[in-house]
Each structure stands twice: as C-alpha cells, then as structure tokens.
C-alpha cells in the first residue's frame, strides 16, 4: 500500500482540460448530419459482411495471409552505453516447411563503429536541414524499423507468396522512412498479385478535415480522423472514399471502417492499383476481428504478440550472451537496481 501524492494543481488543470475537450465535442454536428456531410463530399458508407469459409477459400486459393510488424527495444541509459534491438516479423497463417514466420533483425549501438557513423551522418543531415539534433537517434530508429519491416515483407512476398499482406500501420510511414525499399516492395507485390493493406489503429491523420475544409464547423477544421469518426460508423460498416479524391499527404487509397462494437474507426491503406479488392479485404478483416475487442483484426494482435520483446525477455537475452560483470559495469541502468 502506498499513499498517493497528488498536488491540488494537477486536479485543477485536469478539470480545465476536461472543459476544453467538452467544448470541442459540443461543436460536432449530429450523427445523421455528419454522415450526410461525409456522403456528399467524401464517399459512401458500405455495409461489411463476414465472408464464408467457401468464399475465403475460392478467393485465397490456398495461399495464406501474412501479417507484418516490428518492434524495438532499448537497453542502457547513458550514451554510448546503450543498445537497440530491432526485430521485424512476417508471420504466415499457413506454416511453410514447419516455419510460420520470417524475421529480420538489427542490433544497433554507438559502441559499434559503423552504427556510430550512421548516427553521426544522421546528425549531420539534421544539421544541414537545420533540424534539432536530438532527433538524430529518433530518426535513425524510425528508419531502421521501417526498413526492417519492409525488408521482411519483401521476403514474405517472394518466399511465401501470400494472397494478402497486412501491415500494422499505414503505408505513409514506409514511404517516408524507407523510400527505396518500399518502392521495391510495391513493385514485387504488384507483380506477384499480392494484395497489401495497412491497418491503422491510431488514425492520427487529418485526411477528412483536410478534404472537408470549411464545410466543417470552425472548431473541427483541424480535427484528427480518429475523433471525427468516433461513433460515426456503425458496427460492420466502412466509409469508402471516392476514387477521385486524392489526399494531399497520401498517395494511397484509404478506407475507414468499424470492425467491432467499439465505436472507434480504424483506417486501411491500399495501393491504388488494387482498389478493386478493397471491399473483399475489408470483409475479410471484419471476419477475423473479434466483436467484443477494440476493432483490430486478430491476426495483427497475434503477430504483434509474437514480435514484441518484453523487458524480461530482453534481460534474459542479454544475460545469456553478455558477461554479467560487463553488463553490470557498462549497461545496466542504475535505476534498475531500485528495490521498489
């Protein structure tokens, strides 16, 4: 048991925050009005339907689904005695030769000369672009992770040839962080007839506000897709964006959908070349999403669970391959030695 220390000021400030959020919500148009607005300017609402096993069968032709996800773990507190472990995994629903996943990994630490150089290059780039140097590591981190994910996805397309690849996250991240590799992925997957979908849980984009512009009440013109669409879609419903609408910040086709009882919508990115498959992919994702869950297709949760390395796993791995005394001397954050 412990007594919570909670300054009075925090309470006051949180109440203020609550008032602000409430004002924002108050400015929202009603359910029907907003749906009409979306339908008039953006696209149309489509009911999704779980697909039968036979339909899946005839569609997939025995080819599996692959889920792609990545994780990064860090250890150590003080530069350069830090290390970062990147791992990306492509997991297939149908094991191939007893193997159900492909992985790529990278261990980065300024203690390796080549990593130090990469970090310095990144810093130089930021300096040239007049960006804050603190971003050097962040930038490198995002890039490595995105590259690894795309790399493992390319391998999955070549080695497993699935009918569908589901990415955990939108496509724009790959364009920004792993441009060359992503183009390669796009080329091989389109060549092989592999459909790709990027499922975005936290739709922090502002695509809708951007298109609707001043058709939205003034308070909502800068609103995220996430909060705009909260409770707007019915369960098992998608908002298919008209094809002629191009978002400024995305070259991809995006659909919003609500796959479970939870009112939040998620977004799905597709290559424009594969727009014909959007409905069936959404139906399939709807089929494999638990109704009582938060609305993410189960397969992504399974892939995430597999690729994620917990703090305990990390400790175990480190203690297995690093000498204990070296680890204690250089790496273990002192705060880890706290008793409580």
């Amino acid at each position: 048991m412990r007594v919570l220390v909670f300054d009075e000021g925090i309470k006051v400030r949180l109440r203020e925050l609550n008032d602000r959020l409430a004002t924002r919500r108050a400015g929202r148009p009603g359910f029907d009005d907003f749906r009409r607005l979306l339908e008039a300017n953006l696209g149309r609402f489509v009911s999704l339907a779980p697909i039968s096993e036979d339909e899946i069968d005839s569609w997939a032709q025995g080819r599996p689904v692959v889920g792609v996800d990545g994780s990064v773990n860090s250890y150590g507190e003080s530069y350069p005695y830090v290390l970062h472990i990147f791992q990306a995994s492509a997991r297939t629903t149908r094991p191939l030769d007893g193997k159900d996943h492909l992985t790529c990994s990278s261990v980065v630490s300024p203690l390796f000369p080549e990593d130090r150089r990469a970090l310095e290059d990144e810093r130089d780039r930021l300096m040239r672009e007049d960006k804050p140097l603190e971003l050097a590591w962040e930038g490198l981190r995002h890039r490595r992770l995105a590259e690894l994910e795309v790399e493992v996805a390319i391998r999955a397309v070549n080695e497993i040839r699935p009918f569908l690849v589901i990415f955990d996250g939108g496509f724009m991240r790959y364009v920004v962080q792993a441009f060359d590799k992503w183009n390669e992925y796009r080329r091989v997957s389109l060549e092989q007839g592999v459909i790709s979908v990027g499922v975005i849980e936290e739709t922090a984009t502002k695509l809708i506000a951007e298109v609707l512009g001043d058709k939205l009440p003034p308070g909502l013109r800068d609103e995220h897709d996430r909060s705009l669409l909260f409770g707007v879609l019915r369960e098992g419903e998608a908002l298919g964006i008209r094809e002629d609408i191009r978002f400024k910040r995305s070259e991809f086709y995006t659909a919003f959908a609500r796959f479970s009882r939870h009112p939040q919508a998620i977004a799905c990115d597709f290559f424009r070349e594969q727009v014909d498959h959007v409905k069936e992919v959404l139906d399939f994702l709807y089929t494999i999403t638990p109704q009582g869950g938060r609305g993410m297709p189960l397969w992504l949760d399974i892939v995430d669970q597999e690729v994620r390395i917990t703090g305990q796993d990390l400790e175990m791995m480190l203690s297995l391959y690093l000498d204990r005394d070296l680890m204690e001397m250089f790496l273990r954050p002192h705060r880890d030695r706290r008793d409580y």
Binding site: E53, A60, T93, P290, L298
Partner: peptide, 17 residues
C-alpha cells in the same frame, strides 16, 4: 478479453491458421 467468436477462428483457419 472477450471470447473469440467461432467466425473469427473459422476465418483464420480457412487461410491456414
């Protein structure tokens, strides 16, 4: 953690999982 509906498992089984 709600129980998984048979539909979800069937859908995945159909693609091999």
């Amino acid at each position: 953690n709600s129980l998984l509906e048979p539909r979800v498992l069937d859908g995945l089984r159909q693609v091999g999982f």
